[in-house]
Design a binder for these strands. Structure first.
Lengths: 345, 345
DNA sequence: TTGTATGCGTTATCAG
DNA sequence: CTGATAACGCATACAA
């Protein structure tokens, strides 16, 4: 292995000078810099990141904590998108990502978790979907401030914690409104004075988890709309489970006019249940996953760019590690429908 | 940060003794060992893997090279399974996995790739799906023997390279045979003497990539069956693309009795095309991905345990790094059909 | 069985 | 602007 020492010898300078060139320190004469670079080129020198990390005490290492296969979900499309976005951006920034699954952490206490990350020389965490109820050890670790943390889809900003998410309340409001308007040619209460068609719509809203942050925001969005449009809203927690959504649909859909779900997966579960029940009800989803293209029917949904979100999270982790304070970042969303042919081409 | 030195002081022994305890060296008195462990416990000492790696020159680090989003595939279920299997096993074995996407490497030469892995202190590679045509730089790197490599679904065993895969030829033969037998109540040529129903079946076989190893094996399997059962086989390369399979189906399916695909994704493409064409033909897939549950119709397919395969690959990488020679490992497969309700529950 | 000493490849401090 | 040199935390011959 060719080391910095060999480069120094070849270039006829001191080791420390080479190091300075490597890390683009300011005070190096251009000529020296060039000589060093030439030597690096000639010897095919590759800086050893491990030695660098040991010496500088900065590993640039971030753990991406993913929630995979929860609720027996069939397809882990969203975590995959997060991964791709994060890893690609990390490479661009010269950061180092290790992937960790929540399931691997679930049986650790906060202390053990800390040791694990510490032994891995992790400086920052990117946590996708945190539940204050279920992940108390992880929550504790984050609050301890021992690691710089970026929370995706969870609240909690402080000195070393940033939060990044879409405006879930607004998105749920918007998509549901568009969905209902297009499905029934409805108008909001304000305009209803004219009184064209005025049947109150009965909606089954399949929410996420009780006490979940995202679920709560989305719930507020739909409630706001219900008030505005005068909807009859039946709310049930689907726990983000396709199967649960299926059951709820079978139980309640017959007496409802439409079904709105807090996730695409649940929307698919509802959709398939309706087919098996042999009745038709419009269904609205949330997330914009490609799997929607396979569900058989186009549904309204909220599209989010998971890759980009993860890329931002990586940048933000870099910022935090660099010493800047945590903050909140709102990502954009859009209303869309997903067609099979768009997905595959 | 509490270091090995603090532990040594606390336990009243030398640093090297602590190190020996840490790495369970043989020659340490039980009493000493206990004293050290007590000190470790008391101080909450966590060994620094970076320092350890630098000193021992062994990082235990493996790069998992994944092929994601090729051919505009909709859902990256298989790479995700590989990841989960690999990361979980790596944690159990105390190894360290970094995930790399082929797309990140595609614009590097072999030299640059080597430097990249080297700078990351990678000792071993686990490569999922290698194409000797498209990935020539990567192939070169592997053949150079610079890194211990485990190939998933690609051939090539040597001193520092192992290969792990199912018996693709046999699996394709078996699944197609079962599929045809059940779809048409057919019998093989041998038994046809009795001559109950004897129409020669016209089959559209949508293969993978030309020159791909896996594709070649599967192709041989179907050809073997065709000969045995006296099938009329039309072979077209679908490039593992759902869209391509759709096109081929639209072009040829009308005059065929059944469609057999070298992957589930292509089978889904074919299936959806048939629905749009409004004709029915039985379709057979290969892989056993959950997405099949969403396709609308149950199809015959070959099930493989991707997680387990990846776990084996990690172990194998460990073996190679440990100095043992490469070898070939055949994983089991099974014939199955995937139902939506099984997938979601 | 235990301790001493050296080195791994960097970075960073400080003197020149 | 450049060069010595001391860490960084651990592993490992080798001496005791």
């Amino acid at each position: 292995m060719v080391s910095i020492r060999d480069v120094a010898k070849e270039a006829g300078v001191a080791i420390s000078t080479v190091s300075k060139v490597l890390n683009n320190y300011p005070n190096v004469r251009d000529e020296t810099k060039e000589r060093v670079n030439r030597a690096i080129e000639q010897l095919g020198f590759v800086p050893n990141s491990i030695a660098s990390a040991l010496s500088s005490k900065r590993s640039g290492r971030v753990a991406l904590v993913l929630d995979v296969n929860r609720n027996a979900q069939a397809v882990d499309e969203i975590p995959m998108q997060y991964m791709i976005g994060a890893i690609n951006r990390a490479k661009e920034l010269g950061m180092d990502i290790i992937t960790v699954f929540k399931a691997m952490l679930s049986d650790m206490g906060a202390e053990e978790m800390m040791r694990y990350f510490q032994s891995q020389s992790v400086e920052g965490l990117i946590v996708c979907s945190l539940s204050s109820k279920e992940d108390d050890a992880l929550c504790g670790l984050i609050k301890s401030g021992k690691f710089k943390t970026v929370l995706i889809n969870a609240p909690g900003v402080d000195e070393n914690t940033s939060s990044i998410h879409i405006d879930n309340r607004k998105a749920q409001y918007e998509v549901a409104k568009k969905f209902l308007t297009e499905s029934f040619a409805m108008e909001s209460t304000a305009a209803r004075g004219a009184g064209v068609q005025n049947t109150v719509k009965r909606i089954l809203y399949i929410a996420g988890k009780k006490e979940g942050y995202v679920s709560g925001e989305r719930l507020r969005g739909i409630q706001e709309l219900a008030q505005e449009m005068g909807l009859m809203l039946l709310i049930r927690a689907g726990n983000f489970s396709e199967l649960e959504a299926r059951k709820l649909t079978m139980q309640y859909a017959a007496h409802k006019d439409a079904i709105i779900c807090a996730s695409d997966l649940m929307a698919i579960g509802a959709m398939k249940a309706l087919i098996d029940m042999d009745i038709y009800r419009p269904v609205c989803g949330f997330d914009g996953v490609n799997l929607m293209g396979y569900a058989g029917k186009q549904m309204h949904t909220v599209g989010q760019d998971f890759k980009r979100t993860a890329a931002c999270a990586v940048e933000e982790a870099g910022r935090l590690i660099g010493g800047e304070a945590g903050r909140e970042i709102i990502m954009p969303h859009k209303l869309m429908r997903i067609k099979y042919l768009d997905v595959i081409s």
